[in-house]
């Protein structure tokens, strides 16, 4: 009797939660090819590097200590974070009005603007980076325009500088950030805005009190994505960046592929991971705090 009821209970639990099976493919894939690998990477980051491609599996913090104390690497971390922060700020500053404008539009004009926004997403990043070479190169579009207008005497070099890296990263994140912010702003119901106008708030006050405040969570998420994608981007800095100013991701790839110092590369990867996660947590904390305040 008792056994039977236990079985029934288990069956009942299974029956009630059967729908969870729809998540199985995604969870299995992500667990097996993401969480397991990242844990094994975590293990490797504590190994001791002996020589090229050879490690001792004893536990050491040496890799982390080296990365976080060596002035050269500290400078690399600071440079990477600085670039990611500037990309995030520029992106939000220019992206916000654009998202606001597009979210206020209707009909065919809006569909057209959204289409223009989605075209870059259909175009591989490498192709777009190539395009920036053509624009920013010594004999590129920008230089020839500036030369013909007599703004400059001889071609300026923009490619392979911090500027070109920031431009490439901006190009990479802009469409995504805009889509996120537009979807959040569209979620703001017009009746609220109209109600504010009906109750006598000025246009500016309505924008600040309703649109701006309600869009802040979306802005926070957009900023988070902009930062995380910029701080760990590899293709843009390796193709558009200078060889002397390197970012964390380039150092990681260098250690993993060329130096075959996997423990050191892995520890750098985890510092990068920690930076991303801490930004995520700060973001969560800020948004939960603003929710309470509201």
């Amino acid at each position: 009797m008792k056994k039977n009821s236990w079985l029934e209970k288990i069956h009942e639990i299974y029956r009630k939660n059967r729908f969870l099976m729809v998540f199985m493919p995604a969870i299995v894939l992500v667990t097996f090819f993401f969480f397991v690998p990242i844990l094994s990477l975590l293990r490797i980051s504590f190994f001791k590097y002996m020589e090229m491609g050879v490690f001792d599996s004893s536990f050491t913090l040496q890799n982390y200590i080296k990365f976080l104390t060596d002035p050269f690497y500290l400078q690399v971390i600071w440079y990477t974070v600085k670039i990611a922060l500037s990309v995030t700020l520029i992106c939000l500053l220019f992206g916000y009005p654009v998202a606001y404008y597009i979210s206020c539009m209707t009909g065919k004009w809006k569909m057209f603007l959204l289409l223009l926004l989605i075209i870059p997403l259909w175009t591989n990043l490498i192709v777009r980076i190539y395009g920036w070479f053509v624009i920013l190169g010594r004999q590129g579009l920008l230089n020839s325009v500036l030369l013909s207008m007599n703004f400059i005497e001889e071609p300026i070099s923009i490619v392979f500088t911090t500027t070109s890296v920031v431009i490439g990263l901006l190009d990479n994140v802009f469409p995504w950030i805009l889509l996120i912010m537009i979807s959040v702003m569209e979620g703001i119901e017009w009746p609220i805005i109209e109600a504010a106008r009906d109750l006598g708030a000025s246009r500016l006050k309505t924008f600040y009190e309703i649109t701006f405040k309600l869009s802040l969570p979306g802005v926070a998420v957009a900023g988070l994505f902009a930062f995380v994608w910029s701080v760990g981007e590899y293709a843009v800095p390796s193709l558009l960046g200078s060889s002397s100013q390197r970012t964390i991701s380039i150092e990681i790839a260098d250690q993993m592929l060329n130096m075959l110092n996997w423990p050191f590369g892995a520890s750098m990867a985890f510092v990068l991971f920690a930076i991303s996660v801490s930004v995520l947590l700060i973001n969560n904390w800020l948004s939960s705090r603003s929710n309470i305040a509201r």
Binding site: A26, I27, E233, F273
Partner: peptide, 24 residues
């Protein structure tokens, strides 16, 4: 939790996914 698990690869720098998979 399920949302976080599925979205996690999206929130982690691409280079980390790359080297994880390389090793694994």
């Amino acid at each position: 939790l399920i949302n976080l698990i599925i979205m996690m690869p999206f929130l982690v720098p691409g280079i980390i996914i790359g080297i994880c998979l390389l090793i694994f």
